[in-house]
């Protein structure tokens, strides 16, 4: 069991960014998720090798953080914020609508979609909000939530781009989203170029699609 050459090179570069190897664990765990689509035992073992830790130590770190998923969560992980501000603005109804439309109770996933409740995602001014593969959509309604699910199922976008999904399904935002961006997420882990997990969305801002 090993990683692709690209990921190993990526890992090498990530290790260079920190004064001590162990500090790279978190970033490497994301690389591991990108390799397998989720965080597998094999992935943790490789991270352990790369950082000189035991696999038990890596597992201990990984399971502390909720974004490292040790089980597959589908291609699109929908994290609905249900913390106080979103709760006040109807997040529970939004979550139920999404669960219902997807046919997936929070915490579970099929091959395509995973649904979960999340704690505050920092979008309280645009409540209720959710993340799709950690790309934000603000100002949702239960109906828009349903549309979002069916769009994901039908369009199967390669890249989740926040501007695009916000344009399609979002409403009020926490602040002005005037700066446009092409980058987006390719799986249920954050899209960050340093990790090699971001991709340009070629269909960005083509609302007609799907």
């Amino acid at each position: 069991m090993t990683w692709s050459r690209e990921s190993l090179e990526r890992a090498e570069a990530i290790l260079q960014r920190y004064p001590e190897k162990r500090s790279a664990v978190m970033a490497l765990l994301y690389v591991a998720m990108k390799e397998d689509g989720y965080l597998s035992d094999a992935g943790m073992a490789i991270v352990a090798d790369l950082t000189g830790l035991t696999a038990a130590q890596v597992q201990s770190v990984a399971t502390f953080y909720v974004m490292y998923k040790t089980e597959p969560k589908g291609r699109y992980l929908i994290s609905v914020c249900t913390s106080i501000s979103c709760f006040l603005m109807g997040s529970d109804e939004l979550l139920h609508a999404i669960e219902d439309e997807a046919g997936i109770p929070a915490g579970e996933a099929d091959d395509t979609i995973g649904v979960e409740h999340a704690e505050c995602v920092g979008a309280c001014g645009g409540a209720p909000a959710c993340l799709i593969n950690y790309e934000l959509v603000e100002g949702l309604t239960p109906d828009k939530g349903r549309e979002l699910v069916s769009w994901l199922r039908k369009a199967l976008p390669d890249v989740i781009n926040a501007d695009e999904v916000q344009a399609l399904f979002g409403g009020r935002t926490s602040f002005d989203w005037a700066i446009k961006e092409e980058n987006g997420a390719v799986g249920p882990y954050p899209a960050f170029p340093v990790l090699g997990t971001a991709a340009e969305n070629t269909s960005a801002l083509e609302p007609g699609r799907g």
Binding site: R22, V25, A27, V61, Y65, V66, M67, L195
Partner: peptide
Amino acid sequence: LTVHLGAGAYICGEETALLNSLEGRRGE
């Protein structure tokens, strides 16, 4: 300058938990 991404743990906002996290440990 290194930009470091967390992974879902509010407690890592607490500065010493954050440092543990940045060291590649549990964010305690």
